[in-house]
Every structure is written in C-alpha cells, then in structure tokens.
Design a protein around this nucleic acid. Structure first.
Lengths: 252, 252
DNA sequence: GTGCTGAAGTTGGCTGTACAACTTCAGCCA
DNA sequence: TGGCTGAAGTTGTACAGCCAACTTCAGCAC
C-alpha cells in the first residue's frame, strides 16, 4: 500500500492523485461520495485548478471518480488498479498479492527470428532474438506458462541471469531497460503437449491466453510474450468510459 | 470509417484528435513516423498548444503515438480502438465489422433482486430488476449468450421492445439512457446445461466469459451483464502504458 | 401542489505564459 | 577515433484567466 501512495517525489499532480486515491480508499468523502469542487481542492492543496484537474483526470481514467459538467464528481469505486509494472512483472504482481512468486526457466536459446517473430518485434531479416520458456508458480503451485521472445540486447541480459532467478524484469529495469507501452490480447486456447506436461493438465485442456507486446518509450518493441494460465487462476479487468477507451473486442 | 473521423462538431481537441488519427492511418507522417512538434501542429490548425496536447493525449491513451520528454512523438501503431458504444453494443460492433448481427430474446422477467444482484447494481433491499437472457449471432451463427440484469426503469424500456429487436442498446440511447462508464472482467468458465443447449456446444465445454458493469454519467449502475462466448470467436485487446493503466490482473 | 424561471455553483474547453527536464546533434578537444 | 560540451529543439509541469455548458435548487406564479 505504501509503495506508490503518500509519495513525496515526482510531479505535483501525481502526488495529488495518490493523495486523493488514498482519501477515496479510506472513505474520506462520506457516504454520498461527493468530492469537493476543483476550486476547493486547489485551495486546500495550494495548487492551481489546472493541476487539480490533471490529478482528477488520472483518477477518472482509472474509473475511480465520475466527471460530468455541472455537478461535482462522485466516487465510482475503490477498484485498485495495478501499476504498469505490476502488470508487466508476474513477480511484482504476486508480491503485491502477498503470495510467493516462483519461476523455473525451462529453456532459453538464441536464434534467428522467423518471419512472424520479426513482424512482432519489428526486426529486419536475419536479426537475432532470444526465446525463453518459463513455468510460473504462485506459492509453489504452477499457474502459468510463459513463452517470451526478446530483442537481442535485452535477451542477452536475460541469458546472463541464473536459471533460478525469480524475476527477469527487475534486473532489466536495474540495467536501464525501460518498458513504457504494452498491448495485451486475451483469448482462449487449448493446451499442447508441452503446456500439458509443464502445467500438469491434460493435452487439449482449455487455457486462458494473454499475448503481450511491450515497447520502450521510443516505441521500439522489446519483448513479445504469450502467457497461458490455468483456468480459475486469474482474470483480467479493465475500466473504460466514453471519455477514454483503450479496450477493443476483436473477431478471432 | 467515416463515422467518427473527419467530424465537424464537438470539442476542438476531439476534432483534432480525429484528424490526427486519420492522418496516422493514412501514413501521412512518413516512414519514420515522426509527428510535427506540438507548436507546429498548433499553428497549422490554428489552436493553442494546450488544445493540441489534449488531442494528443487521447491518441496517447489509445496507444497510437508515443510521448516522451525531449523528443518528438512517433507513431506507435494504427490500432483501431473501438468507441465506447461499440464495446457496449454487440450490434454496433458487429456492424462495424461488416457482419450481420442477430439476437433472439429467450427470456425476460421482472423480479425482486437477490443480494448478489443488489450489490452489483447498488440497490436497496426489495428493489425490482429485469433479467434478460439472449442468444447472439453473427451472420446467423451463434456466438455468444448474454445474461443481463437491468435496473428497473431501464428494464421497463427493454421489456417494451419486440422479441425480435436486434439491438437493445440503441432504443435505450434514443430514449435518453446514457452509458458512461463500464468495468469489464474477462475469464474462462465452463458451459452449463443452458449454455450448451443455446450455443450448441457440450455441457462443460470451455467458454470465454466477459462480465460487465455499466453506469450512467452520475455513477449510478444501469446494467450488469455476463456474456459467454464460444472459443475462437472473439478476443479482447487493451493498450496500456506507464502513463495510464486501467487494466489489472486479478487472482481468481 | 405543480411547474416554470432564474441565479448560483460546477466542470468542460481553450488560450497564453513561463520554466523544467530531457534528447539530440554539431562541434570541439584530447 | 573517441568522448565531452553546450546549444537548440521538444515535451512535461504548473500557473492564471475567461467563457460555455450543464446541474441543482430555491423561489415564484398559477
């Protein structure tokens, strides 16, 4: 809880957003959930109305408050949306749940990217990539199988890690690799022989699949991953509104 | 394509965003995909830099462009994110794909909400709701089964429609019901007897489930729906970034 | 009581300004 | 060649102000 909340660094509007998020979670805005007016918040926190609006737009995008011309904002929910990194990193996510994350690297190889992989990572013919296969556990129970391909310079860092390393993304971050954007696609697939063996299910059993393409701040792809979860272990939730939608339903 | 693009009404930043979206889709920013600076766009369109930034933040949230201090923005992708209403309305969505949407209302009843339903819609004990069960088809092929509960005054409108009505949401919109926010949760479930009969699959077969809670601009819940899709018919895609994340992974 | 009207309150939209933080790149120096 | 430095360019953050659009509600007329 005290990781991102109550922060003392960074932009003012972000600190303010964190403050307000905490206030909402603690039920500080009464039973009707009406927030103070932007002007009142501005005076209260000693910032301009513009800064307040910036902070509130963050909460709005996260589905925490409404916004509607003519009336004060009201609390929509206290839904704790995870940070971007908690979504990228299985390890971070597990820890935020209070569970013990585990990982076993089954295989990691360096090879030339095939056409499909080149397209996913935006690479030129002949480019080298790393393929990584890992089994992920939560409190020692197998949950998910992760097939990731990394761009060469990132994969090289991964290859330098111990096979027992629980988190792959944390070391990357420490070495200056920055993940900035990702596109996630969720659908349903059936376990192949490898999935079945590693996850301990039957071949052909249904699995939830999350495919993810992540890029750095410049828009350069860094990794492309296909994760397969055992049924009943996770679900994915997304909030959207007329004001902002990053969600889409696709025909398979 | 020409539904939301090239608009001539609404806020300036929205029109500008639509313009820029179109320009990106048509590849107007060259092979490197570098956008003009905010200042240049402001002069070009005769608006202030603030308005340009508002427009660009929309594209940013949709994953169309990067944004990074110090450098110009670059095109990330042309991913067509759907409008909020296309996500809410199966009918609108199907039409945007060029497919023929169909719907058959199996059952619609008015009754007293049980505790679970009351919680979902934020109702007081004894409140009345409408339960609607529908089978949805795409080009006459069964795709999805939809179990929706509506708040009383909305359900009453639904109940007044013909059983053959393809779209339920469009009539609601015409009668002034406004959907503003929604929270979607995607996971995997197994078909019960009813699912199996209606969708033509076997009992116990895996299905993709999307649960959705939608509210009006004031934050009042309007509907709560549980949709079950046959495997291989749809997938859900969401873009997120360090700047904005409305997505979260939940432990089941 | 019912319904209308208008004032007050609130958020949305747009402009302008200023500075901070960061990236890029040319040019210089060793 | 290699690396450093500094200037120019660009986006991020914050402030202040103005008006429009909308909601709410008290007060009034009927």
């Amino acid at each position: 809880m005290a990781g991102t909340d109550g922060r003392t660094t960074g932009a003012r509007y972000r600190r303010l957003a964190a403050d307000l998020r905490e206030a909402i979670a603690s039920g500080a805005f009464g039973s009707d959930g009406r927030l103070p007016s932007e002007e009142q918040l501005a005076q209260q926190y000693g910032v301009s109305r513009g800064t307040v609006r910036q902070a509130l737009s963050v909460l709005r995008a996260n589905g925490l408050v409404t916004s509607r011309r003519g009336t004060r904002r009201v609390v929509l929910g206290t839904a704790r949306t995870q940070s971007f990194m908690e979504l990228m990193s299985f390890t971070l996510w597990a820890r935020s749940l209070g569970e013990e994350p585990g990982g076993r690297t089954i295989d990691i190889t360096r090879c030339t990217a095939n056409p499909l992989e080149r397209e996913q990572l935006g690479l030129a013919p002949g480019a080298e990539i790393y393929r990584v296969l890992r089994l992920r556990t939560l409190s020692r129970v197998p949950i998910m199988i992760e097939r990731t391909i990394y761009v060469e310079h990132v994969g090289a860092m991964i290859a330098g890690l111990e096979p027992e390393a629980i988190s792959h993304i944390e070391p990357l971050t420490e070495q200056g690799v920055v993940f900035a954007d990702a596109e996630h696609t969720v659908d349903l697939v059936y376990a192949d022989a490898e999935d079945a063996e590693l996850l301990g299910c039957e071949e052909g059993a249904p699995l939830m699949r999350e495919r993810r393409r992540a890029t750095d701040p410049a828009g350069t792809p860094l990794e492309w991953s296909e994760d397969r979860y055992l049924p009943g272990t996770v679900s994915f939730t997304v909030h959207n509104s007329v004001a902002s939608t990053a969600l889409s339903r696709r025909r398979a």
